[in-house]
């Protein structure tokens, strides 16, 4: 592991690219000089805890929140959004729930009403960014390499590349994953979790952390309800069990059903 940046491969695997740009190689070190690796066969089996100083040793009390570094950067992003009058929405879901289609439709629907910008997160490819660019919004793609979520620092770096107009709506499409993104604040105004009717109704119970941390839930692909065995009332009940304050919207991004409510909600949001 590279000690300078903590990256896993001796070079930072996170790439931030605009569609049409040559492949970015954003690694920020001038040179890598790694020390040699020791092969200690080291058994970490000490179970005792220290509450006192040992001879030649000293206890430093920290009580520091492990996520504080990310939270600090998220606050910084949030301040940037506030100053520019930007409303940022963090969209999270499992892969294939229809996030990108929802964005394409939202971009069209917001045309002439409010500027839109998009940050796309995926492990690999520029496919989603290209779809968003075609839909007509400025977009930057973050490829996390092996990473399973976006963090606040990635958003900060993406914002350097993305020209976000004042008073824009900024959609951040997180990496498709119902677990990891829930712990990492990005500086967003709202956290939106999307599930589709082709998934099980018990998703909120299986992945409670995500539903607990979100404030809004979109149930997508409701045009498919006649063809799937999915109980809308049940998923609502489960989602509200985990988070009684969740705002739930039913929608088919594909057909546009329910999209109006979503757009109206967005247009009413204050930075």
């Amino acid at each position: 592991m590279c000690e300078t940046c903590g990256c896993g491969q001796g070079s930072n695997p996170v790439r931030i690219t605009k569609p049409g740009e040559p492949e970015a190689s954003p690694h920020h070190h001038e040179a890598h000089s790694h020390g040699h690796h020791h092969d200690h066969d080291h058994d970490h089996d000490h179970g005792h805890s220290h509450d006192h100083d040992h001879a030649g040793q000293r206890l430093i009390r920290l009580e520091e929140d492990i996520l504080s570094k990310n939270n600090l950067m998220a606050s910084r992003n949030s301040g940037y959004f506030e100053a520019k009058g930007v409303v940022a929405l963090n969209l999270m879901s499992s892969p294939g729930s229809g996030k990108t289609t929802l964005l394409e439709k939202s971009i069209k629907a917001l045309e002439g009403k409010r500027p839109v910008a998009v940050i796309e997160g995926d492990q690999q490819t520029l496919n989603d960014a290209e779809r968003i660019e075609k839909a007509g919004a400025p977009v930057v793609q973050i490829n996390t390499g092996n990473g399973c979520h976006l963090d606040a620092e990635m958003i900060r770096r993406a914002l350097e590349k993305l020209e976000v107009q004042e008073h824009s709506v900024l959609f951040i499409e997180n990496v498709g994953n119902l677990v990891c993104p829930s712990l990492f604040e990005l500086g967003e105004k709202h956290r939106v979790v999307i599930i589709s009717v082709t998934e099980g109704e018990d998703k909120p119970l299986k992945y409670p952390t995500m539903f607990e941390h979100a404030d809004t839930c979109i149930i997508n692909k409701i045009d498919l309800l006649p063809y799937v065995n999915f109980d809308l009332a049940l998923v609502r009940k489960f989602a509200l069990t985990v988070n009684p304050h969740l705002r739930i919207m039913e929608m088919s991004a594909q057909t546009g059903e329910g999209l109006e409510d979503w757009i109206r909600w967005i247009l009413d949001l204050k930075p």
Binding site: H54, R58, R61
Partner: peptide, 11 residues
């Protein structure tokens, strides 16, 4: 909790 409580360091 998700916290670093303390470090034990050599003087």
């Amino acid at each position: 909790e998700l916290q670093i409580k303390s470090l034990l360091v050599e003087q």
